[in-house]
Design a protein around this nucleic acid. Sequence first.
DNA 1: ACCAACCTAATGTGCATTCAGTAGGTTGGT
DNA 2: ACCAACCTACTGAATGCACATTAGGTTGGT
Lengths: 201, 201
Amino acid sequence: MTDQRPYAALLAKGEDRRQRIIAVARRLLTRNGSRGTTLGEIAREAGVTPAGLLHHFASKEQLVHAVLDARDDYDDAHADRTGDILEQLAAIPARFRESPDLIGMFTVLLAENLAPEAPLHERFLHRHRAAVDTIAAGLRRGQSEGRYRADLDPAVKAVEIVAFLNGIETSWLLDPSIPLAEVFREYTGSLFRSLVLDGAS
Amino acid sequence: MTDQRPYAALLAKGEDRRQRIIAVARRLLTRNGSRGTTLGEIAREAGVTPAGLLHHFASKEQLVHAVLDARDDYDDAHADRTGDILEQLAAIPARFRESPDLIGMFTVLLAENLAPEAPLHERFLHRHRAAVDTIAAGLRRGQSEGRYRADLDPAVKAVEIVAFLNGIETSWLLDPSIPLAEVFREYTGSLFRSLVLDGAS
DNA sequence: ACCAACCTAATGTGCATTCAGTAGGTTGGT
DNA sequence: ACCAACCTACTGAATGCACATTAGGTTGGT
């Protein structure tokens, strides 16, 4: 596969290091946030000096963007816009188990960028709205296909779902001993009752 | 009320300044977190120099603790351990409207202290568990009084509720234009359906 | 003499970023 | 076959700023 000529190997090495830096940065950012993580730490764990790291990324802020970009690409590639929303929610606990270090980065960085002047504020605002819209679209599809009851506002329910998802990620990062699977089962169960069956009044 | 002798007035001034510092710190910490807020900023808005601030609080960390202590005291004083949990949840949007700058500080500082080594990690871990326990106790009371159905685990539902509350605070700080009241109405409504009525399997 | 409530002016540290290299590989011209 | 110009992937040592904390006053009341 890989070109074995020395120059290609050199380029491959550089790209490899770049990916290593992103992976290390993602892990550290998830635990400590951007302000709680130094370039020195990331560099050390990736096997370079801080200056070496800045050969691959122009600044700390650009590195954070690159980490977020990589994660967005991953999510886009794995997104499922056709399946049932409730089933997708029910599948989330498996992701917590199988790839725990993909969990929580957005939530942590989001909290650091709530102020309108924060460097990533706009990005997270758009991301939040996009998440709400995506879920609302899934709910609307369920309604138009007759699977969900029509007397409920998808935009409102979507905000609730996003809030729960962000909140449970934070709770789990703080305390991994919470009964995650049961909480998801319970929540998706009550969503089911709200969406599918008739509740009184 | 206040002692008008000069020395008492001096002491009152000191206490007043102390409270001002806590109030300013609370506001700034809620928007920017601990690492995103400098003593200089807090001091300036409170009308002192950084050194003057440190006359009232031994260190930045102790100031943060004092802010959290003040907030815990406030919460304890206003806690209602006898009313219906669902009604208390339904009353929360009014608090967002009436005292918006009391909202979200815990959530933001929590995100900065998820790592086990973080200075406030233990404090937030205990706080989280206490919040879950308090809500679980409220649910259990509703069950034993026959208001809520018994076939549901209060501890699990309580984790869900805390996650939703933390998550919605974050969402609202990021984007105050979300339909907060409707989201609360919808969520408490579906809690009601889960807790009070019979859902099918 | 002692205490509270400050202030100004250091002090020291942590940290992102820059600078000036070094070691190897490539390309195009002669 | 050789060389000048240029590239990638780094390193070690500055540079400079932001920031928490400290030292040593001053003022005014007890």
